[in-house]
Design a protein around this nucleic acid. Structure first.
Lengths: 336, 336
DNA sequence: CTGTTAGCGCTTTCAC
DNA sequence: GTGAAAGCGCTAACAG
């Protein structure tokens, strides 16, 4: 067990015959005389010196890490968001501390504690509870996709309201006369509630009778979807609706499966547009259904940008990014 | 900007009227007289003291972090693996440093450096190159799924050989007479090459004529798959094969799409079994195709376990976990 | 520009 | 068991 201790800045200083401060300056990009710089660089090279990030973090009370609190990375949407946050973080020379909460408030809080204890530069959170109150005042935080009012924490998300309108407009454009809305939502209020508001607004705007399923997500969605179909069946077997705006791709997809099981054709009898933009092999790969896509990469970028903004008064309290429609086989898009 | 400095162990010691060492002992679970312990705990409570993980890491030269080096978290397989590694890491009171390499060796190396600099307890790597040589001798490392010979680093993965045999056996069981194998592989050698070996072995064992496509993955797989179909078409339009073992679910899925475009029915005309066990909305959710599934959670668990084993001579240099078959709509499984 | 120096908060001896 | 004290490697403030 001959564990050789790695060289320190002191060793470098000695080898380069300069002072500790000079070595520090070279490493941190502080202007230094060319001759000294070269001596130091040579010594670093020869000794294979590497900064001790722990010591640095300790001294500066900053670990140069960003903590991402997210339910999991199994869900393709979360996986994609995590991926793009990571990219944005690396691009700024920082590290990513990944905190999966599995939607447990207790985990969210303990991870928040961890973030505090580790002196992270900031935390990006996609949480199921209003955890903002628990974070240290002096750690920048931004919440993504889940908005809790009554708190002064920066929020970043997609323009859900416009997205819902876009979905309805597309369905109408593709020939639907009676689009319905299917929603299973968390018991926690969030920004995605605006999708319902957008649906209602679009109905009013286009003179449609609102007709929608609005349930708390309970795992029993399949039965409820079947019942919804039953309730909308005419005596001749036809359905009273011909279009579906689904709150998420997941529910849109499963609704499609059930419709098909019952003998209806998608998109010929019923067209479906979901929300999120999930692909079968990860984001942006082979869409699962036609969908209103969230700009995940840009959302991640905005979150990191907002965390790193030095002038905290300059970060917008709300940033809403535009969404786009993408064909995914469940709609009758005209061949353009 | 009235940033109040958080309390330190010194503050706790003063408030509890004990020495610094005693506070440290309480925090680290070292036996302490009950009276002292209570005084300290009370002080911690009152001051809202929290350990400074940076200082701790600095002092101990251990950050209590595990670094995971993985191409990305977009791919559902990687996303799932990341998720389960995270769980296993948290369960042991550690943190996860996520390093996405995007398959760039330069990124892999720089993340490895980072892991070194941050005094991580170990690194788990799913890499595209033999980076083992670059890690500090005294940081435990385990490579997952990509095995490089000639190096003394612990390796964990699925039993690819048996998995390939299982796939062929299932195809035969479901009535196939002529199963082929479709493979697009990385230019780097890896454990998944054993899937080909398994296919060849199964062919020999069951008296089949091996017939397979073996190409370096180049993004042009669609054209190559079409050509493969063309090359296996009889004058009457039928195919010379009736079963496909695909190297991954991804390629199996796309082969299915192309077969369907050309008018063949899956699974009636051609049955397909992939490898990995990808679901449409993340791992274990609604399989994309019938598949030989990797036990991702257990693999992750094994990796973490291996990293944390104190007695390095006790960690197996190779751990192969068994795979299982799962129906996913592209095979003619008997209703059991 | 450069050298000197004082800690950052914690763990870990070492006497008592 | 407990207190005192010595740093871990680095940054930043200061004087030259």
């Amino acid at each position: 067990m001959s564990t050789i201790k790695p060289p320190t800045m002191k060793d470098v200083a000695k080898a380069a015959d300069v002072s500790l401060g000079t070595v520090s300056n070279v490493i941190n990009g502080v202007p230094v005389r060319a001759a000294s710089r070269q001596k130091v660089e040579k010594a670093i090279e020869e000794l294979h010196y590497e900064v001790n990030a722990c010591a640095q973090g300790f001294r500066k009370s900053k670990s140069d890490m960003i903590a991402l609190i997210i339910p999991d990375t199994l869900n393709p949407f979360y996986g994609a968001f995590t991926n793009y946050v990571a990219e944005a973080v690396y691009a700024r020379g920082l590290k990513l501390l990944l905190c999966c909460s599995h939607e447990q408030i207790s985990n969210e809080l303990s991870h928040l504690n961890l973030a505090n204890q580790n002196k992270v530069n900031g935390v990006i959170a996609l949480t199921y509870s209003d955890i903002g109150a628990y974070i240290s005042e002096n750690i920048p935080m931004v919440v993504f996709d889940r908005f809790f009012e009554n708190r002064n924490i920066a929020r970043v998300g997609s323009d859900n309201f416009s997205g819902a309108c876009l979905a309805i407009e597309k369905l109408l454009e593709f020939g639907c006369k009676h689009p319905v809305y299917i929603r299973f939502h968390s018991i926690f209020p969030g920004e995605s509630d605006k999708r319902r508001d957008g649906y209602l607004y679009a109905c009013e705007k286009y003179g449609l009778e609102p007709d929608y399923l609005d349930m708390v997500d309970c795992g029993e969605y399949k039965g409820l979807l079947k019942k919804f179909i039953e309730d909308h069946k005419l005596p001749n077997g036809k359905l009273t609706f011909d279009g579906v705006f689904a709150h998420t791709d997941f529910h849109g997809y499963h609704f499609m499966r059930i419709l098909q099981q019952e003998g209806y054709r998608v998109p010929e009898d019923v067209q479906i547009i979901g929300f999120d933009g999930i692909g079968k092999f990860g984001h942006a790969e082979d869409p699962v259904i036609s969908s209103v896509c969230q700009p995940i990469r840009q959302l991640a970028e905005k979150c990191v940008e907002s965390i790193l903004e030095k002038d905290r008064s300059a970060v917008p309290s709300l940033t809403l990014l535009p969404v786009t429609y993408r064909y995914g086989g469940t709609t009758l898009d005209p061949k353009t």
